[in-house]
Design a protein around this nucleic acid. Sequence first.
DNA 1: CTTAGGG
DNA 2: CCCTAAG
Length: 684
Amino acid sequence: MVLQNRLGYGFNGYQVPSTPRAARSARRRGSIRKRVDDNQICAFDLLATVAGKLLLEGQGSASSSNIQNGKEMCTIVEDSIKKEQQGADKASKIEICDQGSCGIHHISKEFSHAHIDYCSGLASVITSSDGSDTVDSADKLVDGKNKNQPGNFASKVEVASSRCESFDGTIENENKEQINMEVPTTGNASNSTKADMCSLDDPAVRFRKSPALVSLDNIVTLPLGTDHVHSGSFPACRDDVNLVIRDDDENSSGCTLPSTMKKAFRPSPRIGDRRIRKLLASKYWKVTPKLKDGENFNADSETKPVYHNRKTCYKRQRSQRDYPIKKRILYDRVSVSNFDGGVSHEDKTSSPRKGFSFGASGSAAMVHGAFGNSAGIASRHTPSQSRDSHVKLHIKSFKVPELFIEIPETATVGSLKRTVMEAVTTILGDGLRVGVLLQGKKIRDDNKTLLQTGISHDNKLDTLGFSLEASPSQASPPLCHEDHPLLLTCDAPQPLTRYPPPPSGVHSAVQHSTADALSDPPFTNLGNCIESDHDSAPSPPDMSIDKSPVDSRALVSIPETNVEALAIVPMKKSKRSEAVQRRIRRPFSVSEVEALVQAVEKLGTGRWRDVKMRAFDNAKHRTYVDLKDKWKTLVHTARISVQQRRGEPVPQELLDRVLAAHAYWSQQQAKQQLKHQSETFLLL
DNA sequence: CTTAGGG
DNA sequence: CCCTAAG
């Protein structure tokens, strides 16, 4: 507590605004826009630190109201230390994070958010007050965490893998969650396929909700350099919770849509902005771990443009961004079965995870499968047309194609998970279309009926396959390859082919979406900055990851404006005058709320732009206005009864923090005003 | 462009 | 989320 005073923090542990609004404003307008607060220790951090210290010392709870459940945190911390001391296997360290993530209380969470940061914080801050073994412990934590990064990654992966497998098994057991496809024989191949796809209901959404595990073979490669760890402390900024929620909206946004139309209107400069934006988002991955105190990766020069043309883009974005992006799925292992053959019990209702079973087996099989890009299909065909003209397809599972991810070794496991998740979800997201193959031959004529194509014959069903191809209308803006830290790819790089799809549909599809992944994953992913997997809600599922050599695999091949803009142009035309569409509603996830709360606690209300940059810099679809609005609703939510609340319930703990922070900053604002008033009064 | 607030 | 006045 002494520390607080000494360091000049607000009594409540909130940081007093360091820059007058006017100054900030000026700063903003100026070319140099520096974030003042980031190099300062946040009061909350301090609190956490103090709490951590207390806890580490086994003194139990801290005094601040913000520090609750100290015991639990204590347990975690001590536990982790113990593990470290015992040389417990490194994988367990991840568990620490996970435990933390499960925590519902402030400190614990904070700790989990930035366990490393806080640890380092402990080392640096606490030492100054009274050095003790506490510091050692903290250091150990930090070091331990880092040291075993490279060496033990494999083991970690294995752990994840096994978990995944078991999970997968679970899914398999729940075969009720398989997807049945029943298609009129008379329907044409294309239609039926699409219909089925649609019946899946936005898979992406489900995916997000579900704890489904994705198992990918050879998808993750971590460069295991030597300088893996910066021994000292971590950058201060790391305690920021930064949500990386790249938005697919952006992708479909007018800004980048490579549609011919757009191009006509949009001079290249826009693309430039776009690039910068992308770069920004991605750069973060690489740079973050190496940031120095106070250094902000959000260099003004880079950030500025983002906001700069935002408005300009906006309108155009809106014209498109809201059109639901039909999520499609990669059908890898598809089984066609007789509906009568005992699968009739399967319900078709939608439920999370339904129909998704990401096998632990390598996805490479899919790539090199019998049909190349086609999905393998085990089939049993209805022996007869007893049910007349219906072919029943039973899709047993899906598999995500091979991915390739490169991520800095200094990245956290959490960010790795998110990266993978991002990649996976992106692939699942959109930009894919289904191709139908029969006996290895692609059926291009969408107008043929199943009957005509022979899909209705059992003998042929054995060779029925679905392939994934890049959706013609899907467009991904070009990305910068160079020193792009994050790299996703699948299998061998193939020349991007336009529609008509390349021989290997999957490849192209994957690549395509892969490129997309770099830019605009379809949905929420947590930021790289979040140290732990604290978010439990839409948290990325655990995945099995394999370490695989980078090979000579090329970076993501960027589909050059591969746009037929088929789906787009008509839309625009019909929309006449580009009636601005309302942005799609995207409820804040708990983790987002958490990030917001934390940022506001630190920065206060009224600095939404900073909040945005701090915690949502990579969440392109969250504008500072959104954040402000969300805060507004949060405050409101916190004040109403639990019964009146709707949507995903926000942990009371968070709401408490909201109220606390709101109260504090309101008061602070009032004070400032008073001050200002008196000043002007004095002048008069 | 940002904030602040009403809608 | 949107819209907008005001800075």
